[in-house]
């Protein structure tokens, strides 16, 4: 009897497996939700809304990839939702790295395990540039390093700009007071333009946008070759290891998604990022596109975690 039930269960299991197999083969059969961990209007939002319809094309064109903003707790709410989602690949999310690794690096308790997500790929890597307001008394990297006390506006202590700012401050010996509560780079810039704060790290592209107005000025580039004439790079002032400070826009899905589905999604994202429509947009707006496939993204995140763990004590 027991044997028979066992056999039955085995048979049932086999049927389920077979069904799952066919279901997997037909992936995707329904719309895919693409979670943006912040409110509408920001950089992550813009990327996802541009890429989603192109990704649809590479997923058979019959289903839609639907962007959804899940804002809350500095992105942690979306991580929670993504972590609990069914591992079927129908919910994917864009992640902000290394900002979203910070809780783990600092050993804070979270309701999700950042290591367990299934990685689909990377959309873009943004590099930093150190920016000062034109009203600030400190207009060069030298004077910033000599300043007694600097003020630096951040969104919250879980933002990438805070992580980068802290590590930079330690490396270059700057005395920085961080002021949280500025929602988004626009408000951070305004605070520098008004002269309320002195400096901030921007991604290169959003600085390029601000620079046109002539109210802020770059003083240090975190790239290998400075994109701004006359602005030194971190290597040039003797700190090449600061080049590792970047913003990675990566895409992941729930833990336990099958390799097969992961590959389908990863290939679709990769193809979408190389699509002429996206490449043209990249050239026109200057937003970087740096496609990476799923497994390589997983490795990137492990490396990032390793790199930032070195600075654990600084970030606390």
């Amino acid at each position: 009897m027991i044997k028979r039930i066992g056999l039955g269960a085995a048979a049932l299991g086999a049927v389920t497996l077979a069904l799952a197999g066919t279901a997997g083969a037909a992936f995707p059969e329904k719309n895919i939700t693409f979670i943006i961990p912040y409110g509408p209007g920001g950089g992550f939002d813009t990327y996802v809304r541009k890429i989603a319809p192109v990704m649809k094309k590479y997923l058979g064109g019959k289903i839609n990839v639907v962007p959804k903003n899940v804002a809350g707790a500095g992105g942690r709410k979306a991580l929670n939702v993504m972590y609990r989602a069914k591992p079927n690949g129908y919910t994917i999310a864009v992640f902000n790295m290394p900002g979203m690794l910070l809780d783990k690096i600092l050993g804070k308790k979270t309701t999700y395990d950042i290591d367990k997500f299934t990685w689909i790929g990377r959309i873009a890597r943004s590099k930093y540039v150190l920016v000062v307001g034109k009203k600030s008394p400190y207009q060069s990297i030298k004077s910033l390093r000599q300043a007694k006390r600097l003020k630096y506006a951040i969104t919250s202590t879980s933002s990438g700009s805070y992580v980068g700012g802290k590590i930079m401050a330690k490396a270059l010996g700057m005395n920085i007071k961080f002021l949280p509560g500025y929602k988004g780079s626009a408000k951070v810039s305004l605070s520098m333009i008004r002269g309320d704060t002195h400096l901030s790290l921007f991604n290169t592209r959003s600085y390029a946008k601000w620079a046109k107005g002539g109210d802020v000025k770059a003083v240090l580039s975190f790239e290998k070759k400075s994109p701004f004439p006359g602005v030194p790079t971190v290597s040039e002032i003797g700190y090449p290891n600061l080049e590792a400070l970047t913003i990675e826009r990566v895409v992941g899905t729930a833990p336990g998604v099958s390799k097969k589905v992961q590959k389908i999604l990863s290939d679709a994202l990769f193809a979408a990022l190389n699509d002429p429509a996206i490449q043209k947009w990249n050239k026109k707006t200057g937003r970087p596109i740096d496609p990476l496939k799923g497994p390589a993204t997983g490795k990137l995140i492990t490396d990032l975690a390793k790199f930032f763990t070195q600075y654990k004590d600084i970030l606390k």
Binding site: P40, R49, S189, D215
Partner: peptide
């Protein structure tokens, strides 16, 4: 400055991009 003054303008600017 290219800064949205409200939530709607934020989405609207995103659309322009």
């Amino acid at each position: 400055f290219g800064i949205p003054g409200s939530a709607e303008t934020a989405v609207f600017l995103g659309a322009l991009v």
